[in-house]
Design a binder for these strands. Structure first.
Lengths: 220, 220
DNA sequence: CAATCAAGTCACCAAACGGTGACGCGCCCT
DNA sequence: AGGGCGCGTCACCGTTTGGTGACTTGATTG
């Protein structure tokens, strides 16, 4: 008596009072899908990132994702395309009125800028977490795009400043970037990192001070 | 002759050529499950870490996981129990014949030890990646256990050495640990980190040198 | 008006997932 | 001998997943 189809039929009619007709606008739908994908990835993480979930959030049929983006892969690629502009969108190019006289000045400033930019971009945070958790082709593309953009940024900001002789700038900077990324990820996930609380702004001040000290220690 | 009224009996007999009878040994099965879980997590990562996969690898029925460990949560907890001994199992307590005169000596040595230990422990690597990717209760327990063990280790190794005044040791060390962890994770996932290749042992020598320089820069 | 083609929807598929109840079997104990 | 009791297995449930074919609907053509 529960699952009686005769009873359900009128109910189904009663439900679709207003079908909320979807407009027939491909480019708008494409944008909606991309936006849904980005917000989903940013809020839920890569764990529950799938065709069904994206379609659900975009409010459209998943078939459209296959049609317009060729599946999840294409969608991820589309996300990665924006990633190249990340640094230039989120990080100010000017030096904030400061005069950067030495390479140490520069790296101190860039470190803090990078830290802050990463702190308030949940999408890129998730992507970084994704990069260190999986090794699929998708992720590798994302990683490459981000890595390249980052390197360009570093190089562009360097300007005419010359790093100190005798130190492996690439390696040292990689370690600094690694530290910042892991610090932010760790904080975002559990509110702390290796016993250092990272919740209040006071916590972050301590972290920033320590980071500055490290940068100054190696670059003078 | 037996109480088998089924007509399919001969078919079943034909299929199960050798039943490969599982021995009735609870503790052995428990160990097999735990081992399977650890190896699965280490090799495949937390993505495909589920009841079915563990049971499949352990070669037993998933029901036994529920019975013996109370589900995946209990199993993860059992994994976490071993984690407390990780540092003491994987990292030598002695100083390798070195005389550590200053806090800088100590931290340089500990950094490299931690780096190497993490580099050849895929399980803990996966757990660290898990920690920065999810925020469930499971992961939080793992994270806490590891974090506590790490802090204890640092404190124990410090001995009577006194860190330099005026620097926030906790914060600086957290950043150093973060850097090492992310470096290893990144290398393990994609073979590089922020443009720094991390595949050959020569690559790692460069990374180690840079790390030493950073530690020395901040701790003298 | 009629034909066409893209936009959007629906129904269905096989597979895998976590989870549970029930059953068979063998060992031990009285 | 017989009655538990613990170990292992199996079948099944509902749900979700990625993926595909077939359909309706609407607008713009000739």
């Amino acid at each position: 008596m529960l699952n009686d189809p005769m009873v359900l039929a009128p109910v189904a009619d009663a439900i679709r009072v207003e079908p909320e007709k979807r407009i027939r606008d491909r480019s708008a739908t494409e944008k909606a899908i991309l936006k849904a994908a980005k917000s989903l990835l940013a809020e839920e993480g890569f764990q529950n990132f799938g065709i069904n979930a994206v379609a659900r959030r975009a409010g459209c049929d998943k078939q459209l994702i296959y049609r317009y983006y060729g599946g999840l892969n294409g969608l991820v690629e589309a996300i990665g395309a924006d990633l190249g502009n990340w640094v230039k969108d989120r990080i100010p190019e000017d030096t904030g009125g400061m005069f950067l006289l030495t390479y140490g000045d520069l790296m101190e400033r860039l470190s803090l800028l990078f830290l802050e930019a990463l702190r308030d971009d949940p999408l890129v945070r998730r992507i970084v977490a994704w990069e260190v958790s999986e090794n699929t082709e998708q992720v590798r593309r994302l990683s490459e795009a981000r890595s390249k953009a980052l390197a360009n940024w570093l190089d562009r900001m360097r300007g005419s400043l010359t790093p100190p002789k005798g130190v492996d700038v690439v390696a040292v900077n990689a370690i600094l970037i690694a530290a910042i990324q892991h610090l932010v990820l760790s904080a975002s996930a559990g509110g702390q990192c290796a016993g250092l609380a990272l919740k209040t702004s006071k916590d972050w001040e301590k972290a920033a001070t320590a980071l500055k000290r490290i940068v100054r220690g190696v670059y003078g």
